[in-house]
Computed example of a mutant assay.
Amino acid sequence: MKLREDARAEGLRLLDWWASHLVDDCGGFYGEVDADDRPVPEASKSIILNTRLLWFFSAMAGKGDARAAGLARRAADYIRTYFHDAEQGGLYWLLKADGRPEDTRKQAYAQAFAVYAFAEYYHATGDAAALTFARDLQALIEAKYWDSERGGYIEALNRAWNPPADQRLSDKDLDAPKTMNTHLHVLEAYSRLHGVAPTEDTRAALYRILTVFLDRFVAPDGHLRLFFDMAWNDLTLSISYGHDIEASWLIWEAAEALDDKALLERARPIVLALAGTARREGMSEGGAFSYEKSFDGHTDPDGEWWEQAEALVGFVNAWQMTGEANWLEAAEKVWAYTKTQYGAGGVSEWTWYAASASKDKIYKAGQWKCPYHNGRAMIEVARQLRKT
């Protein structure tokens, strides 16, 4: 199938770009590469970029790529040496370019990405210390972030494990203590850790986060609710089409990892409803995937690169679940649009926005631009289509 071959080729091409543009001779990886493919040596280094680099290089190393294995080892060593708080545990949010701590807050989201990345690194290398690191971080998430009174995971803590004045993950987010985005990536991380090194503890943790996600964040209208206060009062102001479609396949992945018949039966209609509303409301006739729609009716039609990548995986997953051709057709349409508008299949990393969008150019690599959404999409699509 051509889409499968395209995905395999694009995964290798993305590896080439990230391997040749990010290595910092002063240690680890550059914190930023600008829109014209030039490194920014003075840029701060974020835990999100570094854990996503570790995940992608490890996933490619797991396919036998020796260069990726070396880069994964470099990423793992840098995270454990510089981002890890040896005194109080957990991972810092941001480092200066020279590796000194710059922002020492500890987002649950960041700890989860490290679980995800080190589980993948263990899977690729068999490094027992990486598995211990991942398990210790999962135990830390459970001990520090779980709300034992009302359930769910709180968003952030400071270095000393106290609530910070501002819990936001980014400037786009509400200052809310419980968010869909963090829960989604705890779910993803726990799925992978259970998949590569299952224990009764990993199973129980995965079952709990999946149940919380289905109970709290999935709404009857086929969309996710995004922000809540500590008592689970809904603070959501918009629909995120990209997260709807991303959650659809990550929910199914978690349910399959648990292999629980009742949970699979519960998850199936939810997964297809999320994918269906995302396709119906968020995708244009030309294959573009929108960013979001606010509850007051305003729609931002200029999708970012990551929504296109997640739509590709989500639609292929729905096709695998149902066998209905319209899902595969939707995936192929998104892929064609992504090649035309975001530079997929070209000579560089994908652009942040479509070429037709009236937006300023943004960096190719940085805190929120990593080889994760698009790199993972290529790996996942190739894997899914191998079943056919």
Rank of each mutant, 00 (worst) to 15 (best):
F227N: 09
V218W: 00
D201L: 10
D173G: 02
N162R: 13
L193T: 05
D244E: 07
L263T: 13
L214Q: 13
E253A: 10
R192Y: 14
L258T: 00
T236C: 03
H223N: 13
D244I: 01
Y190V: 08
E188Q: 07
Y207S: 14
F213Y: 15
D201T: 14
L214R: 07
L258E: 05
T179K: 04
I245V: 15
L169F: 10
T179V: 14
I245F: 08
N181E: 00
V218H: 12
L274F: 13
R208P: 01
P269Y: 13
V212K: 03
L263I: 12
A189I: 12
I245M: 04
E285R: 15
E200A: 15
E246K: 02
L237D: 14
L258N: 01
G242E: 00
R192W: 04
A205G: 11
T277Y: 12
A278R: 03
P269W: 13
E256T: 14
P269D: 09
T202W: 00
G276W: 01
Y207F: 05
P164N: 14
P220Y: 04
R266T: 08
R225L: 15
R266M: 07
L174K: 01
A278V: 05
D173H: 13
L274E: 09
D234I: 03
K261H: 10
D171Y: 03
A204W: 02
E265S: 08
A165C: 09
K261I: 06
L272V: 07
P198K: 06
L187T: 04
P177F: 01
Y207E: 11
E285D: 15
R203D: 14
T236Q: 02
G195N: 01
R279I: 10
L169C: 03
G276H: 12
V186T: 15
L174V: 05
I251Q: 11
S240W: 09
V186A: 09
H223S: 07
N233R: 15
G282H: 02
L193H: 06
R159W: 08
N181Y: 05
S248T: 05
M230S: 12
I209W: 02
P220M: 11
V271F: 05
L264V: 07
I251C: 03
L157Y: 05
K178E: 13
R159I: 04
H194A: 15
M283T: 13
M180H: 11
R216W: 09
E256G: 05
A257N: 03
G242W: 00
R168T: 11
P163A: 05
G276F: 08
L226N: 07
A262P: 13
F228S: 04
K172T: 09
A273H: 14
A176I: 08
N233Q: 15
L250H: 06
P163R: 06
P269G: 07
E256W: 09
G242I: 01
A262V: 12
L193V: 08
E253F: 02
E200K: 12
N158C: 11
A255T: 09
L272I: 09
S238H: 07
R159N: 12
L264K: 08
S248W: 01
N181Q: 06
H223D: 05
G222Q: 09
A160M: 05
I245Y: 11
N158T: 07
D244T: 09
P164Y: 11
D166L: 03
R266N: 08
V271N: 06
G242A: 01
H194P: 15
H223Y: 14
R168Q: 10
A219V: 03
L157S: 06
P163V: 07
S191Y: 02
